[in-house]
């Protein structure tokens, strides 16, 4: 698929899956979409390994935008991007946006064929300056 992919990373698998459900219902199936949530032991938290796998599931040559909830999700997502290695890591961005609204707005933008930079900018507009 040539549209930018969206990855949702939450501390809670329920939040991540619920956010993905909303994206699917509101935006449809024209955007590669994956989610992950929970730490390596299955508790609340995030896992670098799961994030890497989610990026691979949502992979698009146009790039992948990641939406995160709290701090550890952001730090782990940035670590995951780095571990993908060049050149793939250059096509993945972590968005600074609220996770639910950001995922829906980013996916909406992506479904229209927008570039990774446009998708990221749309999500960022949701953040308080």
């Amino acid at each position: 698929m040539s549209n930018v992919g969206i990855v949702i990373v939450s501390h809670s698998p329920l939040v991540a899956e619920g956010t993905a459900d909303m994206v699917r219902q509101m935006v449809g199936h024209d955007v590669p979409l994956a989610w992950c949530g929970g730490d390596p032991a299955g508790g609340l938290g995030t896992s670098v390994e799961s994030i890497i796998k989610a990026i691979e599931r949502a992979w698009s040559d146009a790039g992948v935008a990641i939406l995160v909830d709290l701090g550890g999700a952001e730090t782990n997502s940035e670590m995951a991007v780095e571990m993908l290695g060049s050149p793939r890591s250059e096509k993945v961005v972590v968005c600074n946006a609220p996770i639910v609204e950001g995922a829906i707005m980013a996916a909406t933008e992506a479904s229209g064929g927008a570039s990774l930079a446009e998708v990221q900018a749309t999500a960022h507009e949701l953040s308080p300056a």
Partner: peptide
Amino acid sequence: LVMTVGGASGPLYGT
């Protein structure tokens, strides 16, 4: 540590 710790301390101590 990156792969097993989770939280923010995994990537931080891992780094």
